[in-house]
Design a protein around this nucleic acid. Structure first.
Lengths: 200, 200
DNA sequence: ACCCCAGGTTGACAGTGTCAACAGAGTGCT
DNA sequence: AGCACTCTGTTGACACTGTCAACCTGGGGT
């Protein structure tokens, strides 16, 4: 109907919006196209297939999340632990707002190599994690150890947040996901400090 | 062809086998039925629908995993940290062997309430986690705190193992998932001990 | 004038989950 | 015996999905 200069981005944003409500595997290209007022084949023209489309969606969403997280970390000051908390909080908010998007990004429906934008966004996010976690390490920690702790920290946050978002944590546990994540991060932090002064 | 006393369990085990190769969302009831030599509607008779079938698959798989984990913990002795390591190792082996099954269990395609067997298996696994983690806590830790640490520990292990299984941890990190999980658990453990002797 | 081509269309195909109606084999009741 | 009824399974149809192929179409470039 209208000029519609960029149908592709309209489809992407529509998909991101739909992902707030339903999981990625029951997202239909045809329905998206119909809802956008174009034929069922229009998305295929732009993206080549469903996998590529989902990869583009994931890339866009992750890019946005990385920007939000970077902004949250930047506005909080210089204290390393405070910055780590800000980063983790941003991640938790992201998962709370768009759990299905995270499932898509880390899920089996999309290969990270499919789309350079997705890979780039993942790298940007990882770099942010790395810098923030590295700043929390005691002096003298080897780079290899820092990398391992980055991965472990990120897995920790991701795991707790996802399990909680999926309501897989028993109701008997007296805490919400924000508290759980924060406490786990604090525990890891104290463990790092203890190790630096401990034996061997 | 044959007497086929229990077609249902044959379908379930076939599905579990198929899950070792492909993810749950591209598992087809019709293909499973055809491969089992029955009509495309036979699975529907037994399970009522795809969601219920997947719930049954998840329940069976998780039950098996819980049994394996319990056996691994039981055969390792009495030291709490050793038992925790055994539990975690069993979980990591489970994820390595059947990553798609875990995606199914914790994924959006199945609601835990759909099938009592799944819920029961999840509870059994959680109880095992709870007992093992609780035994690692310093004396005087409140039960609420223990529960929070259980959830955090389990999220940690799950997150690292899943991220690693999906190759989402950058190649620059010099460790495999087993090492990462073990080190994270050790760090958490030391954090627990440090907190018990620390301030307030 | 011509061609071309990116963007979009229609039409078809195989595969999927699901619903409805039906068929046979036990099984128990009268 | 006869009959009804439930289990287990079948066939046929439907709507929906992703994808392939071919066709249109309007605006530039030569």
């Amino acid at each position: 109907m209208a000029a519609d200069p960029e149908l592709a981005v309209r489809l992407l944003t529509a998909a991101l919006e739909a992902l707030k409500e339903e999981s990625a595997d029951r997202l239909s290209l045809r329905r998206l196209a119909q809802h956008a007022g174009v034929s069922h084949q229009a998305p295929y023209v732009h993206f080549g297939g469903k996998r590529e489309f989902l990869a583009a969606v994931a890339g866009r969403g992750l890019h946005q999340a990385a920007n939000d997280a970077a902004a949250a970390v930047a506005e909080v000051g210089d204290d390393p632990l405070t910055r780590l908390h800000a980063l983790v909080d941003a991640y938790v908010r992201f998962i709370e707002a768009q759990p299905h998007l995270l499932d898509l990004v880390y899920g089996p429906m999309v290969a990270k190599d499919d789309h350079p934008a997705l890979q780039e966004a993942a790298i940007a996010y990882w770099d942010l994690v790395h810098d923030t976690v590295a700043a929390c390490q005691p002096a003298g920690t080897s780079e290899a150890e820092v990398l391992r702790r980055c991965a472990a920290t990120w897995g920790t946050v991701y795991g707790i947040a996802r399990l909680s978002a999926l309501r897989q944590i028993p109701a008997s546990v007296p805490a919400d996901q924000g508290e759980l994540v924060r406490e786990a991060v604090d525990t890891l932090y104290e463990g790092w400090q203890a190790r630096s002064t401990g034996a061997s």
